[in-house]
Lab assay of single mutants.
Amino acid sequence: SPEEIKAKALDLLNKKLHRANKFGQDQADIDSLQRQINRVEKFGVDLNSKLAEELGLV
């Protein structure tokens, strides 16, 4: 269901964000992850996106 997909995506992105902060990645990478999280919260996951591929939806 779209809600489950959204939850999985947010979980994955939050893990990536945590790792980025923990290991001191570029601020641009961290900002990009934050924008992705905001986009998923607002609009859900686009099944044509790279994120959908990472989640194994495509």
Results as ranks from 00 to 15, higher is better:
N14S: 10
I30F: 04
D11A: 14
L55C: 02
G44N: 02
G56I: 03
P2S: 12
L17F: 04
E4N: 09
L17P: 00
Q25M: 15
D46K: 06
N48L: 08
I5K: 03
L33I: 14
Q27V: 07
A7N: 10
Q27K: 12
A52M: 07
K22H: 10
L55T: 02
Q36A: 10
E53K: 13
L55V: 04
R39I: 13
A52T: 02
Q36P: 00
V45C: 03
L13M: 03
K8W: 10
L57S: 03
K16E: 04
F43G: 04
K42D: 04
K22W: 09
Q25H: 14
R39K: 11
I5V: 09
R19G: 04
E3W: 11
Q36K: 07
G56W: 04
I37F: 03
N14L: 15
L47E: 06
L33K: 00
N14R: 15
A7K: 14
H18M: 15
P2C: 15
L47S: 06
D46I: 06
D11K: 11
N48F: 11
D29M: 15
L13I: 02
A20C: 06
I30M: 05
K50W: 12
A52Q: 02
V40H: 01
N14E: 06
K22P: 03
L47T: 06
K16W: 10
K42F: 06
N21M: 15
A9E: 00
E54G: 03
A28S: 11
D29R: 14
V58T: 13
K8A: 11
R19L: 14
N38Y: 10
S1W: 10
L57Y: 07
K50C: 11
S32P: 02
E4W: 15
E41K: 14
K8G: 03
G24L: 05
N48D: 09
R35H: 09
I5A: 06
A9T: 02
R39H: 15
D29W: 15
E3R: 06
L47W: 08
D26F: 07
K42A: 10
F23I: 10
E4M: 10
S1C: 13
I30R: 05
F23A: 09
L17D: 00
L10I: 08
E41I: 14
I37D: 00
V45G: 01
K6C: 05
N38P: 00
G44L: 02
N48M: 10
K15C: 15
V58R: 11
D26I: 09
R35Y: 08
Q34F: 07
S49W: 05
L51R: 01
K15N: 08
N21F: 14
L17E: 00
K8R: 15
N21T: 15
Q27D: 05
A7R: 14
K15G: 07
L17I: 05
